[in-house]
Structures are given as C-alpha cells and as structure tokens.
C-alpha cells in the first residue's frame, strides 16, 4: 500500500463506530494501542478496543493516554533479533527473521509520528536500507489522534510540529463534540476505512490549542558554543542513566551482540543503546573517548539539533519532536527546553 497522499476525504463517526472499527482491525491485523501495563501506559498489542487506555474515560469522546515510551518501539524494538545462528561442528547456518505481519498502531500522537518519520531518514532514506525497520514500516499503518492541547512539557510547536499535525500519519482522528472526525491522509490509510458505512463530512478539523513557541538555536550557535563550560555545568546533575534516550522518539543508537538460545543455537540481536553511557565509545585497546559526562550530554543535544540533521539531510529540521518525554523522565531535572533557551540567550 502506498504512502502517497489520499484524496482529501473525511468522515464523522461516533465512539461506538470507532470501537467497532478498531475491533474489526484487531481481528484481521495486529492492533497496537496505548494500554495500561503494570501502572504505566505503553503502546502494546490489544485484542479489542476495550483494552485501550483512554485518558478521559468519562468524556463522550475520550482521547487515548500518551504512552511513556514513544511509538519508536513498534518499528525499532528495544531488543530485536536480526538472525539466528545454527552451529554444528564447523557448519554454520544463518537465518534472517523478518517481521512479517500487518500492524495498525492506533492513538499515535503527532510528535510520535514525526519521530517515526525522522527514523525513516536514518533507516530507510539513507542507503543501505535497514531491512528490519523497513519491513515493519511497510507493514504498519499509523492512525493518529490530534492532541487537544500541549501539556506542560510539550514543545512540538517550537520544533516544527503541531498538536494537530496530520502530516506523518496514514489516518488522523480529531475529537469533536462527542464524535471523531476521521481524515484519510495516505492511500495506505484510505485502504483501512470501511467503505460506505460512515457518514462523510466536509467539516474543517477542529484546531488544537497551542501555547506559543520559543526560538530554537540555529547552527551557528551550536558551532560557537561547543567548548563552553556550560556543558560541564549542566551535566553535574546528570546521572548518565540514559532514560532520556530510551523514551526519545528519535534516539536510535543501538548495540549488536550474540546471545545463546540453547547449545548450538544463537541469535544476533540489536538493543537500544545511548551515547550517555560511560563505555559507549570505549575501544578494545582501552581508549575511551568522551569519558566526561558533560561531553556525553553535550553529544545528545548536539545530535538532536546539529549532527543528526546534518548526517541524514534534514536541512533545517531538528531531530527533536518536542514531545517532552525526556523532561518528564529525567530523575535529575535536566530539561532540554532550558538548554535550548540558555543556548539561544548565550553570546
């Protein structure tokens, strides 16, 4: 199914129609949606719509809860098997394990969809194509839901996003007066819309409330302040716990290693990793670049706003989606918006 834009078509559906639709999807495909797992929200497999976590259960048209981890993990799982290795004497047999199932992710936030798009730049738009990521991406349809407003840590509007940005979705839903406005964004999304059953509408999607923007430092600022003591100062409270990287929709560093499944059978896996780790760049000879915490934290900010855009041809775009998860999760109060404002102010 192509990602090309669909003719601009919209429908208006009730909560019941939405649930019926999701139940039907869950029968034919793997449906992933925000779900309450041991007290936290995560994008997880749901077998029907009743398992989905809604943030305003009592409201007529509730929004889904925002998961603590972004939808990155649907396409780029925390741990993923690349292939299996069978060893018998001097014989070796390798077998790739491609994910091969049709998946629909429901309740995707605009910041998360933008994150997936930014990962495309690394894994699909830059040669060679990463076959595991590409396979998952091709098999997956994104159904987004517009945020009504920005919450206290959100700043998507400052990094080129918007709470109702439908760009990177296949289908976008907007809550409106007890009903949902459904917009088919791509052909792939249009394919999921049940024909004829829904009421078409030409209504304009409701606008979300957006609480302003702050300026993002441009390239010159980053170049100028690389050697500032500021990075050491700001990192004093950093614990190098790397939680910021794991919750980030666009942090994509990974490690690769082999694990034993049983004697004679192994798997090569890749796992999320982060430039915040002390031994992240240690080489076999013992040389350990970026040994200082400040250098590592600096690398994370520089990657988001300078390196990643430069390496993967994002032009002026940053690799930050403004979701604010890193602020939420940091136990030491490192706040990316504070860093951006400080850098912008600095002379």
């Amino acid at each position: 199914m192509s990602n090309s834009p669909a003719p601009n078509k919209q429908w208006k559906i009730s909560r019941i129609e939405l649930e019926t639709w999701l139940d039907e999807i869950a029968v034919a495909r793997t449906l992933i949606a925000p779900r309450l797992v041991s007290g936290i929200f995560l994008y997880r497999h749901v077998t029907n719509s009743s398992e989905i976590a809604w943030s305003e259960e009592k409201s007529e048209s509730p929004h889904t809860s925002r998961p603590i981890l972004s939808s990155k993990e649907v396409f780029f799982p925390p741990t993923e098997r690349l292939f299996t290795i069978q060893k018998s004497g001097q014989e070796i047999h390798l077998e790739e394990n491609y994910p091969n199932w049709e998946t629909v992710v429901f309740g995707v936030r605009p910041c998360d969809a933008r994150g997936v798009k930014l990962l495309d730049a690394v894994f699909m738009d830059t040669i060679p194509v990463d076959s595991c990521f590409a396979r998952r991406r091709g098999n997956t349809t994104l159904i987004g839901m517009a945020c009504k407003e920005l919450n206290s840590n959100c700043f998507c509007t400052s990094v080129g996003g918007a709470p109702d940005d439908a760009h990177d979705m296949d289908i976008m839903l907007y809550e409106a007066d007890g009903e949902y406005l459904v917009e088919a964004v791509t052909e792939k999304g249009r394919f999921l819309i049940p024909g004829g059953e829904w009421k078409e509408t030409s209504e304009t999607p409701p606008k979300s409330t957006s609480n302003g923007q702050f300026p993002i430092p441009q390239k010159g600022k980053w170049l100028e302040h690389f050697n500032d003591d500021y990075w050491i100062k700001i990192s004093e409270r950093c614990l190098s716990c790397r939680a910021c990287a794991y919750v980030c929709p666009t942090c994509r560093c990974f490690m690769v290693r082999d694990e034993m499944i049983q004697p004679g059978e192994f798997e090569r896996i890749r796992c999320w990793d982060s430039c915040g780790g002390e031994n992240y760049r240690r080489v076999a000879g013992g040389h350990k670049p970026r040994a200082e915490k400040g250098e590592r934290l600096r690398n994370r900010f520089y990657c988001k706003f300078y390196y990643y855009p430069e390496q993967y041809g994002l032009n002026a775009e940053s690799a930050c989606t403004g979701c604010g998860r890193c602020i939420e999760v940091c136990p030491a109060g490192v706040d990316i918006t504070e860093v951006l404002l400080d850098l912008e102010k600095s002379v």
Binding site: V122, F123, T126, P128, D130, R252, C253, F254, M255, V256, R270, D273, C275, Y280, R281, R282, V283, P289, C303, Q311
Partner: peptide, 12 residues
C-alpha cells in the same frame, strides 16, 4: 572508533 553497524545507522 567503536562501531556496531558500519553502515551509518547505529550512531556509535
């Protein structure tokens, strides 16, 4: 340099 992919993906 420490590398885990060699193809410009792993970021290391």
């Amino acid at each position: 340099a420490r590398m885990h992919c060699g193809m410009g993906k792993c970021g290391r």
